[in-house]
């Protein structure tokens, strides 16, 4: 739902904005709605809340709308918004923060494929120290789109294989324990 279409009276609540600011270190409250982020964003056509409106929604404390939005999951992290923001707000970083809050609160992502992709990617890194692209793609398609989805990719997979672009056997790096320790510590600290 577009924020402008909300029919209810909104009582601004700064708690959510403070949380986002604390977690991200970004000053969301400095946004004065110049819309440069939205005008430069290449994926607004797929968003339900345009980036500048998302900033305003955070300021107003519309936590539910923000955390359930498509916007936070379809952002491509191209970083055009933060390059152009006159107030130095790293909007793309705020998108990351919102994804983290949303996942932390167990909210089902509106674009469920996105968190599946990231978790499969990171599992591969944790296991080998480097990402095994083939393993990652296989598990991602299987988990997100089932066996039929995976089989649809068979042609592309074969194309990659004959072009020598698939490393078949991933071998963990020698210092894998250091990488796993980084994962453990990051998870402990949240």
């Amino acid at each position: 739902m577009m924020v402008a279409e909300l029919s209810r009276v909104i009582v601004p609540n700064s708690g959510f904005c403070r949380k986002v600011e604390e977690m991200s270190g970004e000053k969301v409250s400095a946004c004065f709605q110049c819309t440069k982020c939205t005008n430069g964003c290449p994926v607004t056509f797929a968003m339900d809340i345009a980036p500048h409106r998302l900033m305003h929604s955070i300021q107003l404390g519309l936590k539910g709308e923000v955390l359930h939005s498509d916007t936070i999951w379809v952002c491509a992290s191209c970083e055009t918004c933060n390059t152009r923001c006159p107030n130095g707000i790293d909007v793309a970083h705020i998108m990351d923060t919102l994804r983290q809050i949303s996942q932390g609160e167990g909210i089902r992502a509106s674009q469920s494929n996105v968190p599946i992709f990231h978790s499969v990617f990171l599992s591969s890194v944790r296991k080998h120290g480097r990402v095994s692209e083939m393993e990652m793609a296989l598990i991602y398609y299987l988990k997100s789109q089932g066996l039929t989805g995976l089989l649809k990719q068979a042609g592309m997979g074969f194309g990659m294989l004959i072009r020598g672009k698939i490393k078949l056997i991933p071998t963990p790096i020698r210092a894998i324990s250091q990488v796993r320790a980084i994962f453990r510590k990051a998870e402990e600290r949240g």
Binding site: D96, F121, R189
Partner: peptide
């Protein structure tokens, strides 16, 4: 020697500290 993944786009989406540390 023994370089590891930079974390790419998945780490920063998931956990800021993980992204920087990797």
């Amino acid at each position: 020697t023994n370089w590891s993944c930079c974390g790419s786009s998945s780490a920063h989406v998931t956990n800021d500290m993980l992204a920087v540390a990797l």
